[in-house]
Design a protein around this nucleic acid. Structure first.
Ligand SMILES: [Zn+2]
Ligand SMILES: [Zn+2]
Ligand SMILES: [Zn+2]
Ligand SMILES: [Zn+2]
Lengths: 135, 135
DNA sequence: GCGAGTTTGACAATCGTTCTCAACCGCGGT
DNA sequence: ACCGCGGTTGAGAACGATTGTCAAACTCGC
């Protein structure tokens, strides 16, 4: 985390644990908590410490390879994602998730922001509902 | 919380504690954590249990009198708000908040949802940035 | 095979939030 | 003013997600 020298690489090593987390992430497409992902890894026969799962997920999130958001209880939930900016339509019951894009919304948020003189903008936007299957 | 009889009122009593929380909420217009609000109440000379602060905030949030959202650490933060549906433009540095409305966004979210067959929709949308004063 | 720098995991420690439950209080009826 | 029935409160325990600790294990380039 403290690589001050610009020439040095963070050097993320391909360990068994990180591979296991990646494999687990590939096994579902809804959002899951770190605990659930940890359990899934166990079910897949691997053994990875919970702390390591957290660390790996955080790293992947920084790298933009997984999305992390919070459910209504404030718990962090994760899932692998595409590398373009997008938002989510999540089923409140089964977790089924759809990635959605909204150029109009993106435009709206930056317009609102500059209109009020705010800079360095970021935003969060999630849509929750009940999917067709759960109705 | 369990008023099954439609004729019975929840009957929220005007206690000293609830008045203190309301007074505290009137004293700021940015988002604050329950802890901070609790401290503020103490500074105002009142004494209210932290659990009561949480309970009161939750009640007010249910009634739509305060907004509750989560900061990047997942902590719940609150502030009094207007009674119409709106979102927030929050300064990442000082917390200065602007309530914003976006009919277009509201339309977009429901359109996206029904497009994918999702019903019973709700959504979260917050914009973070740096306010004019903090630039 | 070595050594420096990473990574891991078992467990403790944080910390925000909720639960417990006996004491307390507001309110409507008398 | 007095009573009694809930709603309400507070101190502290309990919870649960997340992070910190640190010695042992591991990767990788040499
Ligand atoms: Zn569903
Ligand atoms: Zn966006
Ligand atoms: Zn500011
Ligand atoms: Zn909205």
């Amino acid at each position: 985390m403290t690589s001050t020298d610009p020439t040095s690489r963070p050097s993320v090593r391909p360990t068994r644990q990180r591979r296991a987390v990646a494999a687990a992430l590939a096994g579902f497409d809804d959002f899951r908590s770190a605990q659930e992902i940890h359990d899934l890894i166990s079910q897949q026969g691997e053994s990875v410490g919970l702390a390591t799962v957290y660390r790996t997920l955080a790293t992947l999130a920084d790298a933009g390879e997984v999305d992390m958001l919070r459910n209504e209880d404030g718990e962090a939930i994760w899932r692998s994602c595409s590398d373009t900016h997008h938002h989510h339509l999540v089923c409140r019951t089964c977790g089924a998730t759809v990635e959605v894009e909204g150029p109009a919304v993106e435009r709206w948020t930056s317009a609102i922001a500059s209109e009020h003189g705010y800079g360095d903008i970021s935003h969060t936007l999630e849509i929750f509902g009940t999917c067709p299957a759960c109705r």
